[in-house]
């Protein structure tokens, strides 16, 4: 491998890293500004170029004084997202295994069509679903509750879990199932004892996707709640008044991404282990 290739490779990696990190650095420096620090044109270095202030951060943890308290919404977001993701993952994994290993036929409907049916649930623009979901939760008496949001999120997240897991199970060799069956395992035992333990990377990816999409949903969290239940994106957007507060929204962006970055580290370590698993098999 030539030196030039290595240089190009690292240059590409560093360039992309810079692109990825730029908005965060900008958000970081902006989060310490005030209106005066912004209207003077773009500046980057505190003290040297602008007088830093903690106001943007304070607004996130203050109530009644022009700020929001993101503690409660943070917790609500965690509860709703994690519950919905877990349920979606369980149901989606089961369905995906079924779709991957057995043949379904009903009229013109085949496995691929059922899989597509799951995924197609994500095609509909959320805008239209707002009122139907509103009426449904109204009928169930679940508007403005975490439980209601969990139900809606399951419909949003399960398709993702099904899609990732179908693809994943398709790459797991069928010989594994067959040898387990020969050993006298029932289909469910095969799934539980043999396939699932070998599917950690897939499960992690699917679970992470569910977490990400759930955590970052704004629209349903916004339309299906009133005053009792508030999820994090909705609480943060409450800062976006006539003046767009560059400072506190920047701080909020950094705060809201934090837990998922932690998840990214976990994910990466599973990916590396997935690599090992692939080698063994």
């Amino acid at each position: 491998m030539s030196a030039l290739y290595r240089i190009l490779k690292y240059a590409a990696i560093l360039l992309w890293s810079a692109f990825v990190i730029a908005p965060f650095l900008w958000a970081l420096t902006t989060s310490f500004k005030t209106a005066n620090g912004i209207t003077g044109g773009p500046t980057y270095i505190p003290w040297l170029q602008y007088q830093p202030s903690l106001e943007g951060w304070r607004l996130l943890f203050r109530s009644g004084g022009g700020g929001i308290q993101i503690g409660g919404p943070y917790l609500d977001s965690l509860i709703v997202t994690i519950s919905a993701s877990l349920i979606s993952l369980v149901l989606g994994t089961l369905a995906a295994y079924g779709l991957s290993r057995f043949t379904f036929r009903a009229g013109f409907v085949r496995n691929a069509d059922i899989t597509f049916f799951f995924i197609s649930q994500r095609i509909m623009p959320p805008v239209v679903l707002a009122i139907p979901f509103f009426l449904m939760l109204q009928f169930l008496g679940l508007l403005d509750t975490k439980f209601g949001l969990i139900i809606v999120y399951i419909a949003l997240l399960m398709p993702i879990a099904v899609w990732v897991m179908v693809d994943f199970f398709n790459t797991v060799p069928r010989e594994l199932d067959e040898s387990a069956m020969l050993d006298g395992c029932s289909p469910f035992e095969t799934f539980w004892r043999v396939i699932l333990p070998n599917s950690k990377p897939g499960l992690v990816v699917a679970g992470l996707f569910c977490l990400i999409f759930g955590w970052n949903d704004f629209f349903f969290a916004f339309t299906l709640t009133f005053t009792q239940t508030q999820l994090l994106p909705v609480a943060i957007v409450a800062l976006n008044s006539s003046v767009t507060p560059w400072w506190s929204l920047s701080a909020a962006a950094l705060v809201s991404v934090a837990p998922l970055v932690a998840v990214a580290f976990v994910l990466e370590s599973y990916l590396s282990r997935g690599n090992l698993a692939g080698a063994i098999r």
Partner: peptide, 22 residues
């Protein structure tokens, strides 16, 4: 209990409950 909504989304946030009798 107070909920804060950006101006652009305020109308629908009020209108949906109004029209659905909530």
């Amino acid at each position: 209990n107070v909920v804060h909504v950006p101006f652009g989304d305020l109308f629908q946030r009020i209108m949906i409950p109004f029209q659905t009798g909530q």
